[in-house]
């Protein structure tokens, strides 16, 4: 006896629980929305947070650069601070990557050498690098060297200048602020940098007072990238003259001359945490 109704096979069964189907559909849409949010909107928002931090850190590096110059040239201690990293906005349903940490550190030491016809004096100096650790945006390190502040974009040949040099402003005097001591800090917090002037680190007593001096300044920048603007700025009758950029070694050297010692001012700043 066959009591199975042919109309109830899986193929032609027309019954359905519309509430269940609706619920499954809505759940599906919600899950889809959440994944889309996590995959596209969240990285966008985090990139925005990182970009804002990048802008802030740029401003703080300008203040750091100004503080170094003030400490050296005005002989007063300065205590600027830099916020090394940032935190993403907090989220309930989705997951953020780890907060981006940054590193602020001094480079290895290089010598500035000043020579007259017979003697040479060496004074060591360092650069400062701020290296961001962003998850979303690609941003190069920001470098400070001898009052020039620039972003070194990876993959491009050109440094983007944030603040110009003031080694020479009116052609009358070459003013160099050297940076000494080692500094390295990493993290997401705000770090204070102590800048203490230390005039005793500079000794030019071996040099003749009236002779022309040649000054070799270490630099990561090359001539076409930056220093040719200085060449254009200086006239032949200025007391400070531009010679060339020596690009033969691992590090470049900017070579300048001054008519005598009176037109050269070197000061030193020590950096502590």
């Amino acid at each position: 006896m066959r009591d199975r109704n042919p109309s109830t096979t899986i193929w032609n069964d027309r019954r359905g629980v519309s509430e269940v189907v609706g619920f499954i559909l809505i759940l599906g849409i919600l899950v889809l929305t959440l994944t889309t949010y996590q995959a596209t909107i969240l990285p966008q928002q985090n990139a925005q947070t990182e970009f804002q931090h990048f802008e802030d850190v740029r401003n703080e590096m300008i203040e750091l650069r100004n503080a170094i110059s003030t400490a050296g040239q005005a002989d007063v201690s300065q205590f600027p601070s830099v916020k090394l990293g940032t935190n993403y906005q907090s989220r309930i349903l989705t997951i953020n990557p780890a907060p981006p940490a940054g590193t602020l550190q001094t480079s290895e030491a290089y010598n500035i050498s000043i020579s007259d016809s017979t003697d040479t004096e060496n004074i060591s100096t360092k650069f400062i690098e701020y290296q961001p650790g962003y998850n979303e945006i690609t941003a190069g390190s920001t470098w400070y060297e001898h009052s020039v502040l620039y972003v070194d974009e990876p993959g491009t040949r050109n440094a983007i200048t944030i603040e110009d040099q003031h080694l020479v402003t009116d052609g009358n005097k070459l003013k160099i602020t050297t940076l000494q001591n080692t500094f390295q800090r990493s993290g997401t917090n705000r770090e204070t940098v102590e800048l203490l002037p230390n005039q005793s680190a500079v000794d030019l007593s071996d040099l003749d007072d009236s002779e022309e001096l040649t000054v070799r300044i270490p630099t990561r920048l090359n001539e076409t990238e930056y220093w040719d603007t200085l060449d254009e700025k200086l006239d032949t009758d200025d007391h400070v003259g531009y010679e060339h950029v020596d690009e033969s070694g691992d590090i470049n050297y900017l070579v300048l001359n001054t008519t005598n010692k009176e037109h050269l001012e070197i000061n030193a700043v020590e950096i502590y945490s």
Partner: peptide
Amino acid sequence: SPRFQSLNLGTDYRA
């Protein structure tokens, strides 16, 4: 002696 003073000329609104 020289001073190096900076000013933040403008501002960005919150995201």
